[in-house]
Computed example of a mutant assay.
Amino acid sequence: MNWSAISFDWNHVRAFLATVEEGSLSAAARATGQTQPTLGRQVAALEDAIGVTLFERAGRSLILTKSGAQLVDHVRAMGEAASRISLAASGQSQSVEGLVRISASDVLSTYQLPPIIAQLRDTAPGIEIEVVSSNAISDLLRRDADIAVRHVRPEQPELIARKLADSDAYLYATPEYLARVGNPATLQNLKNANFIGYGAPDEMLPHFVAMGLPLIRANIRYHSQSGVVGWQMACQGLGVGVMSERVAALSPEVVRVLPDQTPVSFPTWLVSHRELITSSRIRLVFDHLAAALS
Protein backbone atom coordinates (compact mmCIF):
# COMPACT_ATOMS: atom_id res chain seq x y z
CA MET A 1 0.00 0.00 0.00
CA ASN A 2 1.41 3.36 -1.03
CA TRP A 3 0.23 5.37 1.98
CA SER A 4 1.81 8.60 0.79
CA ALA A 5 -0.41 8.56 -2.30
CA ILE A 6 -3.55 8.73 -0.15
CA SER A 7 -3.70 12.41 0.68
CA PHE A 8 -7.43 13.02 1.01
CA ASP A 9 -9.80 12.91 3.98
CA TRP A 10 -12.60 10.30 4.02
CA ASN A 11 -15.03 12.92 5.34
CA HIS A 12 -14.38 14.97 2.22
CA VAL A 13 -14.98 11.91 0.02
CA ARG A 14 -18.21 11.26 1.94
CA ALA A 15 -19.33 14.85 1.28
CA PHE A 16 -18.68 14.41 -2.46
CA LEU A 17 -20.56 11.10 -2.63
CA ALA A 18 -23.52 12.47 -0.67
CA THR A 19 -23.73 15.47 -3.00
CA VAL A 20 -23.70 13.23 -6.07
CA GLU A 21 -26.32 10.81 -4.74
CA GLU A 22 -28.62 13.41 -3.17
CA GLY A 23 -28.40 15.75 -6.17
CA SER A 24 -27.45 19.00 -4.46
CA LEU A 25 -25.44 20.43 -1.57
CA SER A 26 -28.58 21.33 0.35
CA ALA A 27 -30.04 17.82 0.05
CA ALA A 28 -26.68 16.26 0.94
CA ALA A 29 -26.41 18.51 3.99
CA ARG A 30 -29.80 17.35 5.21
CA ALA A 31 -28.92 13.70 4.59
CA THR A 32 -25.60 13.92 6.47
CA GLY A 33 -26.78 16.21 9.26
CA GLN A 34 -24.36 19.00 8.37
CA THR A 35 -24.72 22.58 7.20
CA GLN A 36 -24.55 23.36 3.50
CA PRO A 37 -21.46 25.66 3.86
CA THR A 38 -19.60 22.92 5.77
CA LEU A 39 -20.38 20.36 3.10
CA GLY A 40 -19.35 22.78 0.36
CA ARG A 41 -16.00 23.38 2.06
CA GLN A 42 -15.42 19.62 2.34
CA VAL A 43 -16.07 19.10 -1.38
CA ALA A 44 -13.75 21.99 -2.22
CA ALA A 45 -11.07 20.54 0.08
CA LEU A 46 -11.30 17.21 -1.76
CA GLU A 47 -10.87 18.98 -5.09
CA ASP A 48 -7.76 20.71 -3.75
CA ALA A 49 -6.35 17.49 -2.30
CA ILE A 50 -6.65 15.43 -5.49
CA GLY A 51 -6.16 18.29 -7.94
CA VAL A 52 -9.37 17.59 -9.86
CA THR A 53 -12.44 19.76 -10.43
CA LEU A 54 -15.41 17.63 -9.46
CA PHE A 55 -18.27 20.05 -10.08
CA GLU A 56 -18.90 22.96 -12.38
CA ARG A 57 -20.72 25.80 -10.61
CA ALA A 58 -23.64 27.09 -12.68
CA GLY A 59 -25.30 29.74 -10.56
CA ARG A 60 -26.57 27.90 -7.50
CA SER A 61 -26.44 24.51 -9.24
CA LEU A 62 -23.65 21.96 -9.36
CA ILE A 63 -22.91 19.97 -12.51
CA LEU A 64 -20.69 16.90 -12.23
CA THR A 65 -17.61 17.24 -14.44
CA LYS A 66 -16.34 14.44 -16.67
CA SER A 67 -13.46 13.88 -14.23
CA GLY A 68 -15.88 13.80 -11.31
CA ALA A 69 -18.10 11.29 -13.09
CA GLN A 70 -15.12 9.00 -13.66
CA LEU A 71 -14.41 8.98 -9.92
CA VAL A 72 -17.97 8.29 -8.77
CA ASP A 73 -17.82 4.47 -9.06
CA HIS A 74 -14.57 4.34 -7.08
CA VAL A 75 -15.97 6.68 -4.43
CA ARG A 76 -19.20 4.68 -4.24
CA ALA A 77 -17.16 1.52 -3.62
CA MET A 78 -15.42 3.34 -0.75
CA GLY A 79 -18.82 4.28 0.67
CA GLU A 80 -20.04 0.69 0.50
CA ALA A 81 -16.85 -0.49 2.22
CA ALA A 82 -17.38 2.10 4.95
CA SER A 83 -20.95 0.86 5.40
CA ARG A 84 -19.71 -2.72 5.77
CA ILE A 85 -17.22 -1.61 8.42
CA SER A 86 -20.02 0.18 10.27
CA LEU A 87 -22.24 -2.90 10.01
CA ALA A 88 -19.53 -5.17 11.34
CA ALA A 89 -18.76 -2.83 14.24
CA SER A 90 -22.44 -2.46 15.10
CA GLY A 91 -22.85 -6.21 15.06
CA GLN A 92 -20.12 -6.58 17.68
CA SER A 93 -21.88 -4.27 20.12
CA GLN A 94 -23.31 -6.18 23.05
CA SER A 95 -24.86 -3.18 24.77
CA VAL A 96 -28.63 -3.14 25.21
CA GLU A 97 -28.60 0.63 25.07
CA GLY A 98 -28.55 2.86 22.02
CA LEU A 99 -30.45 3.59 18.84
CA VAL A 100 -32.38 1.06 16.76
CA ARG A 101 -34.10 2.23 13.56
CA ILE A 102 -37.26 0.40 12.47
CA SER A 103 -38.66 0.85 8.97
CA ALA A 104 -42.35 0.10 8.40
CA SER A 105 -45.30 1.28 6.33
CA ASP A 106 -47.14 4.38 7.49
CA VAL A 107 -50.18 2.32 8.52
CA LEU A 108 -48.19 -0.13 10.60
CA SER A 109 -46.06 2.71 12.03
CA THR A 110 -49.17 4.62 13.09
CA TYR A 111 -51.49 1.93 14.38
CA GLN A 112 -49.37 -1.05 15.44
CA LEU A 113 -45.86 0.01 16.37
CA PRO A 114 -46.57 2.56 19.16
CA PRO A 115 -48.08 0.05 21.65
CA ILE A 116 -45.32 -2.44 20.80
CA ILE A 117 -42.67 0.20 21.47
CA ALA A 118 -44.41 1.06 24.75
CA GLN A 119 -43.99 -2.58 25.83
CA LEU A 120 -40.35 -2.47 24.76
CA ARG A 121 -39.80 0.67 26.83
CA ASP A 122 -40.67 -1.29 29.97
CA THR A 123 -38.44 -4.20 28.95
CA ALA A 124 -35.39 -2.24 27.78
CA PRO A 125 -35.60 1.43 28.82
CA GLY A 126 -32.07 2.13 27.55
CA ILE A 127 -32.99 1.52 23.92
CA GLU A 128 -33.82 4.50 21.70
CA ILE A 129 -36.22 3.79 18.83
CA GLU A 130 -36.52 5.73 15.59
CA VAL A 131 -39.45 4.72 13.37
CA VAL A 132 -38.79 5.28 9.68
CA SER A 133 -42.35 5.54 8.37
CA SER A 134 -42.30 4.90 4.64
CA ASN A 135 -44.22 2.86 2.09
CA ALA A 136 -41.03 2.43 0.07
CA ILE A 137 -38.79 -0.58 0.75
CA SER A 138 -35.86 0.60 2.86
CA ASP A 139 -32.31 -0.34 1.86
CA LEU A 140 -30.97 -2.22 4.87
CA LEU A 141 -27.63 -2.79 3.15
CA ARG A 142 -27.07 0.95 3.13
CA ARG A 143 -28.31 1.39 6.69
CA ASP A 144 -31.58 3.14 5.90
CA ALA A 145 -32.78 1.17 8.92
CA ASP A 146 -31.62 -1.64 11.23
CA ILE A 147 -34.85 -3.63 11.06
CA ALA A 148 -37.62 -3.54 8.46
CA VAL A 149 -41.19 -4.82 8.56
CA ARG A 150 -42.11 -5.77 4.99
CA HIS A 151 -44.86 -7.54 3.12
CA VAL A 152 -42.49 -9.01 0.52
CA ARG A 153 -39.69 -11.49 1.10
CA PRO A 154 -36.19 -10.01 0.67
CA GLU A 155 -33.96 -11.55 -1.98
CA GLN A 156 -30.51 -10.29 -0.92
CA PRO A 157 -28.40 -13.07 0.64
CA GLU A 158 -26.90 -10.60 3.14
CA LEU A 159 -30.28 -10.17 4.80
CA ILE A 160 -32.04 -12.49 7.20
CA ALA A 161 -35.81 -12.63 7.33
CA ARG A 162 -38.39 -14.20 9.58
CA LYS A 163 -41.89 -14.73 8.23
CA LEU A 164 -44.52 -13.80 10.77
CA ALA A 165 -48.19 -14.74 10.71
CA ASP A 166 -50.15 -13.92 7.56
CA SER A 167 -52.62 -11.07 7.95
CA ASP A 168 -56.15 -10.90 6.55
CA ALA A 169 -57.61 -7.79 4.94
CA TYR A 170 -61.28 -7.05 4.27
CA LEU A 171 -63.46 -4.29 2.85
CA TYR A 172 -64.60 -1.74 5.44
CA ALA A 173 -66.83 1.33 5.49
CA THR A 174 -68.94 3.31 7.93
CA PRO A 175 -72.50 2.08 8.53
CA GLU A 176 -73.78 5.46 7.32
CA TYR A 177 -71.99 5.13 3.99
CA LEU A 178 -73.23 1.56 3.49
CA ALA A 179 -76.79 2.75 4.10
CA ARG A 180 -76.32 5.40 1.39
CA VAL A 181 -75.37 2.75 -1.18
CA GLY A 182 -78.18 0.36 -0.22
CA ASN A 183 -76.44 -1.90 2.31
CA PRO A 184 -74.79 -4.14 -0.33
CA ALA A 185 -74.94 -7.88 0.28
CA THR A 186 -72.61 -9.07 -2.51
CA LEU A 187 -69.51 -7.84 -4.32
CA GLN A 188 -71.67 -7.13 -7.38
CA ASN A 189 -73.80 -4.75 -5.32
CA LEU A 190 -70.74 -2.51 -4.85
CA LYS A 191 -70.44 -1.53 -8.51
CA ASN A 192 -71.74 1.99 -7.81
CA ALA A 193 -69.87 2.56 -4.55
CA ASN A 194 -66.95 4.93 -4.06
CA PHE A 195 -63.65 3.26 -3.17
CA ILE A 196 -60.54 4.56 -1.44
CA GLY A 197 -57.25 4.00 -3.25
CA TYR A 198 -53.85 3.67 -1.62
CA GLY A 199 -51.67 5.07 -4.36
CA ALA A 200 -52.54 5.89 -7.98
CA PRO A 201 -56.06 4.72 -8.99
CA ASP A 202 -54.75 2.99 -12.12
CA GLU A 203 -52.43 0.94 -9.91
CA MET A 204 -55.13 0.11 -7.36
CA LEU A 205 -57.85 -0.87 -9.84
CA PRO A 206 -56.31 -4.27 -10.80
CA HIS A 207 -56.12 -5.21 -7.09
CA PHE A 208 -59.80 -4.41 -6.59
CA VAL A 209 -60.75 -6.34 -9.73
CA ALA A 210 -58.70 -9.32 -8.52
CA MET A 211 -60.89 -9.34 -5.40
CA GLY A 212 -63.92 -9.90 -7.64
CA LEU A 213 -65.19 -6.31 -7.50
CA PRO A 214 -66.94 -5.02 -10.65
CA LEU A 215 -65.17 -1.66 -10.56
CA ILE A 216 -63.88 0.81 -13.10
CA ARG A 217 -61.47 3.72 -12.71
CA ALA A 218 -64.34 6.09 -11.86
CA ASN A 219 -65.15 4.11 -8.69
CA ILE A 220 -61.87 5.17 -7.07
CA ARG A 221 -63.03 8.67 -6.23
CA TYR A 222 -60.64 9.32 -3.35
CA HIS A 223 -57.02 8.24 -3.07
CA SER A 224 -53.69 9.04 -1.41
CA GLN A 225 -50.14 7.75 -1.45
CA SER A 226 -50.47 7.60 2.34
CA GLY A 227 -52.20 4.54 3.69
CA VAL A 228 -53.03 6.43 6.89
CA VAL A 229 -54.75 9.22 4.96
CA GLY A 230 -56.61 6.74 2.78
CA TRP A 231 -57.82 4.80 5.80
CA GLN A 232 -59.03 7.98 7.49
CA MET A 233 -61.04 8.77 4.36
CA ALA A 234 -62.80 5.44 4.78
CA CYS A 235 -63.32 6.10 8.49
CA GLN A 236 -64.89 9.48 7.66
CA GLY A 237 -67.46 7.85 5.38
CA LEU A 238 -66.06 8.81 1.98
CA GLY A 239 -66.19 5.28 0.62
CA VAL A 240 -65.07 1.67 0.94
CA GLY A 241 -61.49 0.90 1.91
CA VAL A 242 -59.36 -2.22 2.29
CA MET A 243 -57.55 -2.73 5.58
CA SER A 244 -56.01 -5.46 7.67
CA GLU A 245 -58.31 -6.95 10.25
CA ARG A 246 -55.95 -6.00 13.05
CA VAL A 247 -55.88 -2.30 12.16
CA ALA A 248 -59.61 -2.16 11.40
CA ALA A 249 -60.31 -3.49 14.89
CA LEU A 250 -58.80 -0.25 16.23
CA SER A 251 -61.36 1.84 14.29
CA PRO A 252 -64.83 1.34 15.81
CA GLU A 253 -66.40 3.78 13.33
CA VAL A 254 -66.17 1.22 10.49
CA VAL A 255 -67.69 -2.21 9.94
CA ARG A 256 -66.89 -5.02 7.55
CA VAL A 257 -68.81 -4.45 4.33
CA LEU A 258 -69.54 -8.10 3.60
CA PRO A 259 -69.43 -10.42 6.64
CA ASP A 260 -68.89 -13.47 4.42
CA GLN A 261 -66.18 -11.91 2.23
CA THR A 262 -63.16 -14.08 1.51
CA PRO A 263 -60.18 -12.22 2.98
CA VAL A 264 -57.15 -11.01 1.09
CA SER A 265 -54.17 -12.57 2.89
CA PHE A 266 -50.69 -11.05 2.85
CA PRO A 267 -47.46 -12.05 4.60
CA THR A 268 -45.40 -10.00 7.02
CA TRP A 269 -41.62 -10.37 7.05
CA LEU A 270 -39.23 -9.09 9.68
CA VAL A 271 -35.87 -8.32 8.08
CA SER A 272 -32.41 -7.30 9.27
CA HIS A 273 -28.79 -7.56 8.16
CA ARG A 274 -26.91 -10.75 9.06
CA GLU A 275 -24.17 -8.80 10.84
CA LEU A 276 -26.49 -6.42 12.66
CA ILE A 277 -28.53 -9.23 14.12
CA THR A 278 -25.55 -10.22 16.27
CA SER A 279 -25.94 -6.92 18.15
CA SER A 280 -27.67 -7.48 21.49
CA ARG A 281 -29.88 -4.42 21.26
CA ILE A 282 -30.95 -5.12 17.68
CA ARG A 283 -31.54 -8.79 18.44
CA LEU A 284 -33.68 -7.79 21.44
CA VAL A 285 -35.82 -5.41 19.35
CA PHE A 286 -36.03 -7.93 16.48
CA ASP A 287 -37.28 -10.68 18.79
CA HIS A 288 -39.70 -8.31 20.53
CA LEU A 289 -41.22 -7.25 17.20
CA ALA A 290 -41.44 -10.85 16.04
CA ALA A 291 -43.37 -11.86 19.14
CA ALA A 292 -45.69 -8.85 19.04
CA LEU A 293 -46.49 -9.00 15.32
CA SER A 294 -46.90 -12.77 15.05
Rank of each mutant, 00 (worst) to 15 (best):
H207D: 15
E47Y: 03
P252I: 03
L164V: 10
A185L: 11
R217S: 14
R153I: 10
W3M: 14
V229F: 05
S95H: 00
A27I: 07
S280D: 11
W10Q: 11
R14H: 11
I220E: 10
G98H: 02
T35H: 08
P214A: 12
Q42A: 12
M204G: 12
Y198F: 15
D168H: 12
N192S: 14
A292F: 06
A44E: 14
S95V: 09
T123Y: 02
A28R: 00
S86L: 09
E21Y: 04
E275T: 02
V285K: 08
A58S: 13
L71V: 05
A200K: 14
L178G: 04
A145V: 04
L178R: 01
C235N: 12
P252C: 05
V271M: 10
L213T: 12
P206T: 06
T278E: 14
A69V: 09
A249V: 03
I85N: 04
A234W: 01
L120M: 12
S133Y: 01
P184V: 07
P214E: 11
D122N: 05
P206A: 15
P263N: 05
H74T: 15
A291D: 09
A88P: 05
T32Q: 12
M1N: 07
E176M: 10
I85R: 07
L213E: 04
L190A: 05
G68D: 11
L276Y: 02
L164T: 07
Q36G: 05
I216G: 15
D48G: 07
Q236K: 09
T32R: 07
I147C: 13
S105T: 08
P267N: 07
A31L: 04
T19S: 11
S224T: 08
N135T: 05
C235H: 11
G91H: 04
A124I: 00
L190R: 03
L178P: 01
Q94M: 09
L71W: 00
L62D: 02
L293G: 13
G230Q: 05
V240P: 07
S90K: 06
A45E: 09
R41G: 07
V96P: 03
T65I: 08
K191S: 15
A200P: 14
G59M: 04
L276T: 06
A15F: 01
A18F: 02
S95F: 07
S138I: 13
R217T: 13
G199V: 03
N135P: 08
M233N: 08
L258P: 04
A124E: 09
L108G: 07
P114Q: 05
A89F: 01
I127K: 02
S294E: 13
C235K: 12
T174V: 11
S24R: 03
K66L: 14
Q261P: 06
S103L: 06
A104K: 07
S167R: 15
L120Y: 00
M204P: 00
